[in-house]
Amino acid sequence: MASETQGIQQLLAAEKKASEKVSEARKCKARKLKAAKEEAKGIIEKCKCEEEQKFKESEKMILGSRNDVKTRMDKHQEDVIKKLAQEATENKDKVIQRILELVCDVKPELHINYKTT
């Protein structure tokens, strides 16, 4: 009976060792999985930054920088204002003369609805 007890104890000890090894293997697997996830996140971030940089460079090349666009718009606006001011100055006398002609050159006419009785 002592040998049976000793055999059972050996089996229990072996079972305990096996469960410890399985537990250790699961922990190791979890650590490796966590490390792989962290590495993947790092790679994804790196790729995302690279692609974002490429996009910004191509956007800048195609559209120009925002400052360039603003500068061009401001210059165009100034040019249009100068052109309108110049045209107004050039045509000022003609417009005044035309207004005076229309106001001073009155041609009396009867209204079309006026009926003579």
Rank of each mutant, 00 (worst) to 15 (best):
Gly42Tyr: 00
Cys104Val: 02
Ala13Tyr: 02
Asp105Gln: 15
Glu51His: 14
Ala40Glu: 07
Glu38Gln: 07
Ile8Ala: 09
Arg66Ala: 10
Gly64Phe: 07
Met61Arg: 15
Glu109Gln: 12
Lys94Asp: 03
Glu57Ala: 10
Lys37Gly: 06
Glu24Pro: 01
Ala88Phe: 11
Ala14Thr: 01
Gly7Leu: 06
Arg72Asn: 07
Ile96Asn: 06
Lys34Tyr: 05
Cys47Gln: 13
Phe55Asp: 09
Ser3His: 11
Gly42Cys: 01
Leu110His: 13
Tyr114Ser: 04
Lys16Ser: 03
Glu59Ala: 10
Thr116Glu: 15
Arg31Thr: 08
Lys75His: 12
Thr117Ser: 15
Ala36His: 01
Asp68Val: 03
Cys104Asn: 10
Lys48Cys: 11
Leu84His: 14
Gln86Tyr: 09
Leu102Ile: 06
Cys49Ser: 15
Cys104Phe: 04
Ala35Ile: 02
Glu101Ser: 12
Glu57Ile: 05
Gln6Leu: 03
Ser3Gly: 09
Lys83Trp: 11
Cys49Val: 09
Ser19Pro: 00
Lys75Ile: 08
Val106Asn: 13
Lys46Tyr: 08
Asp74Met: 11
Lys32Gln: 12
Ser58Arg: 15
Asn113Tyr: 09
Arg31Val: 06
Gln77Ser: 12
Glu20Ile: 04
Glu90Leu: 04
Asn91Val: 00
Ile112Asn: 14
Glu4His: 06
Met73Thr: 02
Thr117His: 14
Ala36Thr: 01
Arg26His: 06
Leu63Lys: 14
Ala30Met: 04
Arg26Met: 05
Glu4Leu: 08
Leu63Glu: 09
His76Lys: 13
Glu78Ser: 12
Leu33Ala: 13
